[in-house]
């Protein structure tokens, strides 16, 4: 699908995957998880042995489609309720560490 799961990626760096998920791994953890990750991937790769020629990729198991909503406005959260989970607020906005482009 994307580079992370490329078939020819013989080894997937656990630190790279952890970074994508914004997880910080200690050296010890990385050493434990690297072989585990490879094991999981190896297991999934067994699927590669199957002949799926002509089989449509399945995104959903249920035979349900076209679930739509009418274009109607419905009440949401009022501002105070929406901000209740904000650790910090300023001028009605959620405050986050400075975003640098």
């Amino acid at each position: 699908m994307t580079d992370t799961f490329r078939d020819d990626a013989s080894r997937l760096d656990v630190r790279y995957v952890a970074h994508l998920a914004r997880l910080h791994l200690s050296d010890e953890e990385a050493a434990v998880f690297q072989p585990q990750l490879e094991q999981v991937l190896g297991y999934v790769r067994e699927l590669g042995a199957l002949d799926v020629e002509g089989v449509e990729p399945t995104a959903h198991a249920f035979p349900v489609q076209n679930v739509f909503r009418d274009d109607e406005v419905r009440p949401g959260l009022d501002h105070e309720a929406a901000m209740k989970n904000a650790p910090q607020e300023r001028q009605g906005q959620f405050i986050v560490p400075k975003i640098i482009e």
């Binding site: 406005v73 949401g76 009605g92």
Partner: peptide, 23 residues
């Protein structure tokens, strides 16, 4: 559209910050 793509919040510009929001 009148409402947002995945919820019923109004799809309109402006408004005070975080007033057209829902879970």
């Amino acid at each position: 559209t009148r409402s947002k793509i995945f919820c019923g919040c109004p799809n309109e510009p402006g408004g005070e910050p975080n007033t057209h929001v829902c879970p």
